[in-house]
Design a protein around this nucleic acid. Structure first.
Ligand SMILES: [Mn+2]
Ligand SMILES: [Mn+2]
Ligand SMILES: [Zn+2]
Ligand SMILES: [Zn+2]
Lengths: 126, 126
DNA sequence: AATTTTACTGCGACACAGTTGCAATATTAC
DNA sequence: GTAATATTGCAACTGTGTCGCAGTAAAATT
């Protein structure tokens, strides 16, 4: 199933690149120039995740945030997202803190997905 | 507003103590002996969180998990939950890994809530 | 022990995030 | 240009969590 390039996919990907931060569905929808259906945005984002263009974080608000894969080793074989995210409770920004983190797990445990979010106040809002 | 002890509150608290793990609403509901209303369970859990008896983690599945505060310094003045949680993708168990974690944030950032979850396979399921 | 106070419960309705089925549309291959 | 099919829009749906309100029951007061 080969992927196709559409105005929606390019717009959303460009938006995420330009933002640099992790964006939720509603942030994306309201930032888009053209009207794109809710379901389409979700489907596009899920495809980007499958393709390793974008990674997903779930915040402590229960919402999904999507960010471009830049320092995640998207180019390398190992594509891991063991980095912390910071969500500002004031301005709502969600940033990828590209600080390497290796968390040792107990014997026999295998890590598949890292979902690391710290919420608080960013330097703009503190 | 003083709290009252009811069969629901004692049952839910005992269940969480006995389990030792973090439990989601539906895990709790299905483990309870007596039938307790959905909304009541949520309200009891939220009260426990307010009172510092229990802490909440949001998984990468977007669901809330609740665990007894034991090694969180519930007794001390500083009651922080900067510890990692592990969610097994196979058996669904969510554990508090009581490994101390101090994550240095960039200058000017203030942490309020830590929501750290690693998903994968536990020692039973790997 | 009876009465009062009010915290808690159950029920229903609701809000919200995300998913899915299906017909219509648009991209890519030929 | 035509055919094949990936993508879209729309509507309906699911699941998690919240809220208002009337009824119930815990605890304080008498
Ligand atoms: Mn990230
Ligand atoms: Mn915990
Ligand atoms: Zn901020
Ligand atoms: Zn397991």
């Amino acid at each position: 199933m080969k992927r196709r390039t559409t105005s929606s996919t390019t717009e959303i990907l460009d938006l995420l690149k330009a933002s640099g931060n992790a964006m939720s569905h509603d942030m994306i929808q309201s930032s888009l120039d053209s009207k794109v259906d809710r379901a389409t945005i979700y489907r596009v984002l899920n495809r980007f995740c499958e393709d390793g263009k974008v990674h997903r974080v779930v915040g402590d608000d229960g919402k999904q945030y999507f960010a471009i894969c830049s320092n995640c080793g998207a180019k390398k074989q190992v594509h891991s997202h063991n980095h912390i995210h910071f969500r500002c409770l004031q301005c709502g920004t969600v940033e990828c803190l590209d600080r390497e983190l290796s968390i040792p797990l107990p014997e026999g445990y295998v890590a598949k997905v890292h979902n690391l979010v710290i919420s608080g106040f960013c330097n703009e809002c503190s």
